[in-house]
Simulated scan of single mutants.
Amino acid sequence: MTLLQVEGLGISFGGLRAVNDVGFAAKPGEIVSVIGPNGAGKTTLFNMISGVYLPDRGRVLLDGEEVTRLEPHLLARKGLTRTFQNLQIFQDMTVLENVIVGFHLAERGHLLSDLFSLPGTRRRSADARAKAMKLLERVRLEKAAELVAGNLSYGALKRLEIVRALAMSPRVLLLDEPAAGCNAVETEEIDEFIAELAASGIAILLVEHDMKMVMRISNHIVVLDHGVKIAEGRPDQVSRNPDVISAYLGVDQTPELLEEGVLTGDENKEAANADR
């Protein structure tokens, strides 16, 4: 069963065609990675799927329903949420409060009840707090629940952002470079968590520059170059595709270079800092 269907998405900025006729599908429990060199259009594609940008062409379907023109908060209510390339954390709030924010979207409170903190409001607050703690336990951040988020390590903040997205009970989760800036241990923790989320039935759409991570956890890979899809398939198929290797390296190298993670070398680190 297809949960997310992307059909012929395209967008231009000032006459420049940033993404052109890109399509793919994701099933429940599947990890689909979108990769490509710096400037390939990956984040722009994410922005169209998640309602940040309105595409010029194409459409997005969620469980068979067209959701192309819905705003991000409406998409989130339907089960499609995302994280961002740059951390969107409330640095001065506690870790627990950051997660509780994610539950507000699903709340159906009453103005007077909230204003006077009536029993119904107190019950919802206690319920949100309990659920938030359970989510923090999944990423081993429960002991940091009452700490100010700004005091956490970068890797912990990345996990916190994913957990906050999970508070909205997504069926489709878009992760934009969840391991960027993380060390090897933090990256391993994040990719294990992503695999766990997929195993629970969530469809994961991933943009990531760490090719070792991508090849390790992806079920399916879509490759963009200059806004155009140049390849698609299983990790083993994509890693040996000459067009993919040429797009990344600019020369005709052997497929083993991609498999060995050459794209995460120092000479390519700048690709993790921007996508447009």
Rank of each mutant, 00 (worst) to 15 (best):
E161H: 04
R108V: 07
A180N: 03
P119R: 04
A26L: 15
A149S: 10
N98H: 13
E270Q: 13
A144P: 00
V60H: 08
R276A: 14
D56I: 07
V139E: 09
E232H: 01
D63N: 09
A198K: 10
E177G: 06
V228K: 11
L263E: 00
A26S: 14
I190Y: 00
R77C: 08
R122C: 02
L175C: 12
A132P: 09
L249M: 15
T81D: 01
F13M: 09
F24K: 01
G10L: 09
S153H: 04
A180K: 08
I49C: 03
M1A: 13
E161G: 02
S218F: 11
V163C: 00
G36T: 00
L96W: 03
D225N: 14
L111R: 13
A195Y: 06
G120T: 05
H110A: 14
E177A: 09
Y53P: 00
K134I: 01
E189L: 14
G64L: 10
A179P: 02
K42A: 03
A106S: 15
L16G: 08
V207K: 14
M133P: 05
G36D: 08
L173I: 09
S125I: 10
S50G: 10
E232P: 01
A184I: 13
S246D: 13
L75M: 04
M133W: 11
R234Y: 07
A272D: 13
D236L: 14
P242Q: 07
A128L: 10
Q5L: 02
G250E: 05
A272F: 13
I245H: 01
T94V: 02
